[in-house]
Structure formats: C-alpha cells, structure tokens
Nucleic acid binder design. Structure first.
Length: 194
DNA sequence: TAGAGGATTGAT
DNA sequence: TCAATCCTCTAC
C-alpha cells in the first residue's frame, strides 16, 4: 500500500506523473476490483482549471483542502462520478484526477457495473471507470489507507513511455487549460480518447 | 430562491 | 453536434 507521505509532497504535478503505473484497488460491495493507472491529470489551487482555485472552499470541494491521501469524489453533469486523489499538505487544495485504468482484477464485475460486454469499454473515461470500480460519492473524503479504496505500487513507467499533454474539458480555464498536466502511458490501449 | 453551467458520455 | 440530468454555486 502506498503510504500517506507519497501524496503529501508539495509538487502535485510530479505526483500525477508518478501515479502512472500504480494500481487502484477497491473492495466496494464485497468485490475486489483493481486497475493499473494509465492516465492522470494534475489540478493545483494556483490555476483556474481547479475547483479550489483562489483557495475557494465550498461544501463540495472541502475535501481537497484535507491533507494528501484522501479521496475526492464529485458528481459531474449530474450523471458521472469523478475520482481524485487529494495531494499536498492540509489547507492547500491540490488533487490528481484519475482518468483511465487498465483492468487487472474483477474484470467481470467491472463490466457488469459499467453495463458493457467488452473489457475495453470498461474504463474508457473518468466517469465510466468510477462506475466500473463502484466509486460513488460515499467515498468522498475516504482515507486511502485500506478500507474500501487504496493504491498499490505497480510497474513504474519508463521515461520514454510517458507522455504529457493539455488537460481535457476545461476550456473555461483560459491560459491554464494549455498547461501540459495530463499524463498518459504512450500507446496504451486503455488511455481515453480525446 | 431562481438560474446557469459543468474535470462526461453516447447516440445522431 | 447535441441532449441527458442534477447538484453546486452565484447573484438577487
């Protein structure tokens, strides 16, 4: 299990990069499901793409201001749940969005939850991967050290296999939308299509 | 308290 | 290209 210190470092962008290759595990509903992280996005309170921009705290995003190592889950477009890992120190407001996984354990269960019949369709985006893993807003604020959800060490991603690009779906962030803070595993089938 | 809009998805 | 769908935030 990855210790709290991993999440509590200052540089959220570095954490987002290092999360690639690690394994997200949930035991929701009594079923073990796990997937290797192949796509992440960093969000810092210093830029407009982030819910916590300008240290703005609301009932929705208050978990982002907890100390690194918590889960931040929120509903988007009234339909989808998005799963984030809170980073940095208490009161900062940084997080990393998990956008795509390569299924490892419980693939049948994940397909059933997502309502699809092809493994490839399970995690083709942040909304669907949350559904497949059983992640709901009940996990908002969960401590990522066992219990229902946590991360494990996986296979590290080599420098040549790592790609950085602009983040998705935050046009409203203006200049900040162009920051190369989306990290993917190059040529990996499971990375979401833009 | 009303109104606008969103870190998405899948069908057209 | 666009609707689904509902919670959250902002302004009045």
């Amino acid at each position: 299990m990855i210790p709290p210190e991993f999440y509590q470092r200052k540089n959220t962008v570095t954490i987002a990069r290092q999360l690639l290759g690690k394994v997200l595990v949930t035991t929701i509903g009594g079923y073990l499901t796990a997937g290797r992280i192949v796509e992440t996005e960093a969000y810092s309170h210093r830029e407009r793409g982030c819910h916590a921009f300008g240290n703005r705290m609301t009932p929705r995003n208050k978990v982002m201001f907890e100390v690194g190592g918590h889960a931040y889950v929120y509903r988007c477009y009234g339909i989808h749940h998005l799963f984030n890992v809170v980073t940095n120190s208490s009161g900062t407001g940084d997080a990393v969005l998990i956008r795509a996984l390569q299924p490892i354990e419980g693939i049948d269960r994940m397909m059933e939850r997502a309502g699809v019949d092809l493994p490839k369709r399970i995690t083709s985006g942040p909304g669907k991967l949350s559904k497949a893993m059983g992640i709901t807003q009940e996990l908002n604020g969960a401590w990522l050290q066992g219990g229902k959800v946590w991360l494990e060490e996986g296979s590290p991603i080599g420098r040549s296999a790592l790609a950085a690009s602009a983040r998705v779906g935050i046009d409203y962030a203006g200049e900040d939308a162009r920051l190369p803070w989306r990290f993917t595993v190059r040529n990996n089938t499971w990375v979401s299509k833009p």
